[in-house]
Computed example of a mutant assay.
Amino acid sequence: MSALELARGAIGARFRLHGRDVAHGLDCVGLAGLAYGAQVPRGYALRGGSAERIAAVVCAAGLVRAGDARPGDLVLFRAGAGQLHLGIASEIGVIHADAGLRRVVERPGVPPWPELARWRREH
């Protein structure tokens, strides 16, 4: 299955900080790990992350920086002051673990957060 299909399969899962599976809940890092089949870190705070640290983990998982936008890309956003957020690009918007809605959702349209980087698997 593609990263996009795996992310779409998690829609409706509850939000859980440091969550790593659909049954018990996911956060944005857990959703990214699920979609790309990668081990992801634990023990981080909801705020105060480093874009450089995230880039290093993503690249270590075998993803490469993407220059253009495609469905299935892993996207890093600045969601607020000191808050980074990951999502999976879709044909209609972005799939992400929404802490406010308390579940994984597919948000249509252009995401409201500034995009910092995007990655994908090379085939």
Rank of each mutant, 00 (worst) to 15 (best):
A3H: 01
L4M: 04
L4C: 06
E5M: 14
G9V: 11
G9H: 10
G9S: 13
I11T: 15
I11Y: 04
G12H: 13
A13D: 00
A13T: 00
A13S: 07
R14E: 00
H18R: 08
H18K: 04
G19S: 10
G19D: 05
G19L: 12
R20K: 11
D21C: 09
V22N: 00
A23M: 05
H24P: 02
H24F: 10
H24W: 07
G25M: 01
G25V: 04
G25D: 00
D27C: 01
D27M: 03
D27W: 05
C28D: 01
V29L: 09
V29S: 12
V29H: 10
G30K: 12
A32P: 06
G33S: 07
G33P: 08
A35Q: 05
A35H: 06
Y36D: 03
A38I: 15
V40N: 07
Y44I: 03
Y44M: 00
Y44F: 13
A45I: 12
R47N: 07
R47T: 12
G49E: 09
G49R: 15
G49C: 08
S50T: 11
E52Q: 13
E52S: 13
A56N: 08
V57D: 09
V58D: 03
V58Y: 08
C59G: 10
G62I: 10
A66T: 14
R70A: 13
P71E: 06
P71D: 00
L74I: 05
V75F: 10
A81R: 13
G82V: 02
Q83S: 03
Q83F: 03
L84P: 02
L84F: 05
L86G: 06
I88A: 05
A89F: 06
S90C: 09
E91N: 03
G93L: 01
H96N: 14
H96Y: 14
A97F: 03
G100K: 14
G100F: 15
L101F: 13
R102E: 12
V105A: 03
R107H: 11
P108C: 01
G109C: 05
G109F: 02
W113N: 00
P114D: 03
P114Q: 09
E115T: 15
R118N: 08
W119R: 14
W119A: 12
R121G: 01
H123G: 11
H123L: 04
